[in-house]
Each structure stands twice: as structure tokens, then as C-alpha cells.
Amino acid sequence: MKKIALFTLILLLCGGLVWAKEYEIQKKAGDLSVVMKMQRNPAVMGENGITVTVKDPTGKEITDAGVKVEYSMPAMPGMPPMNYGSVLAVQKNTYQGKLNFSMAGPWNIVVKILRSGKTVSTKFSLDVQ
């Protein structure tokens, strides 16, 4: 009986890892709705996939914009600030790319959307493990 209980527990724990939900957050950028999803939850040091969905006020997905993600970690004692950027490519009605976090800790993420000559942006915070 103990073997069955142990096997069931291991199966449940492994199943939870397989079906772990990606990190998702939604905010507004001007009149646009922006949904950012990180491939890993929590995000980890190194390369992490990112998907950004942009919708107009009517809920229609926008695919004719330029989307750039700027991510940074503020300066800490003995360490200068870190600033990076990534231009996302349109794939299947979303903007996709990779962010490469160089160390664990709090990161600031700014999603910038350029459309019709105007730029709007929204800010997110992320804790990298």
C-alpha cells in the first residue's frame, strides 16, 4: 500500500511540473491591451521565451506593429545597471522572442509598441530565479 501511495505522489508531482502554467500578465498601453507570457514560471537565469499579444480596443489582435521589449536590472552595490533589448517577431498573431537574463533577482520589463508612427508602452516587473 505504501508503494502505491508513493508512486501516486511522485506521479502527481511530476504531472504538476509538466502542466505548470506559464507566467502571464495583462496591462494597458494607451488604448491597447497587452498580454505578456513568459515560457517559464518563474523565469530563470538564461534564455526565456516571451510571447506578447496586442489587441485593439475592440479586442482584435494587432499584427502590424513593431514590438520591442527592453529589460533591465537596477544598479546594486558594486554592480552597474544592466540594460538589454529584444525586438519581437510576428508569429501566429502574436509577437515572439527570447529574453536572456544574466542573473537572478528583480527585473523591469518595458514593452514598447510602435504603430502608425506612435509609440505606446507598458511596464512589468519580474522576479528571475
Rank of each mutant, 00 (worst) to 15 (best):
M1S: 11
M1I: 02
K2F: 14
K3N: 02
I4L: 12
I4G: 00
I4M: 15
L6D: 06
L6Q: 07
F7C: 06
T8I: 14
T8W: 06
T8A: 11
T8G: 08
I10V: 09
L12Q: 13
L13Y: 08
G15A: 12
L17I: 08
V18Y: 10
V18C: 06
W19H: 14
W19R: 11
A20M: 13
K21D: 14
E22N: 15
Y23I: 09
Y23D: 12
E24H: 01
Q26Y: 01
K27F: 01
K28V: 12
K28I: 06
A29H: 11
L32T: 01
V34Y: 04
V35L: 12
M36S: 07
M38C: 10
N41H: 07
P42Y: 00
V44Y: 04
M45G: 00
G46L: 02
G49H: 07
T51C: 07
V52L: 05
T53V: 11
K55H: 05
P57M: 09
P57L: 09
G59I: 10
E61C: 03
D64T: 05
G66L: 04
G66S: 06
K68S: 06
K68Q: 14
V69M: 10
Y71R: 09
S72L: 04
M73R: 09
M73Y: 08
P74L: 15
M76Y: 10
P77V: 05
P77W: 09
G78A: 01
G78D: 04
P80L: 14
P80T: 06
P81N: 12
N83D: 05
N83W: 00
G85K: 01
S86L: 04
L88R: 02
V90N: 10
V90C: 09
V90R: 02
Q91V: 08
Q91L: 04
K92I: 03
N93K: 11
N93E: 09
T94H: 14
T94M: 05
T94A: 06
Q96W: 00
G97T: 07
G97Q: 03
K98M: 06
L99S: 04
N100D: 08
F101D: 03
M103N: 14
M103H: 11
G105S: 03
P106H: 10
P106K: 13
W107F: 06
N108C: 02
I109K: 00
V110I: 12
V111I: 10
I113R: 02
R115V: 07
G117E: 07
K118D: 03
K118H: 06
S121M: 03
S125L: 08
S125T: 13
L126W: 00
D127E: 12
Q129R: 11
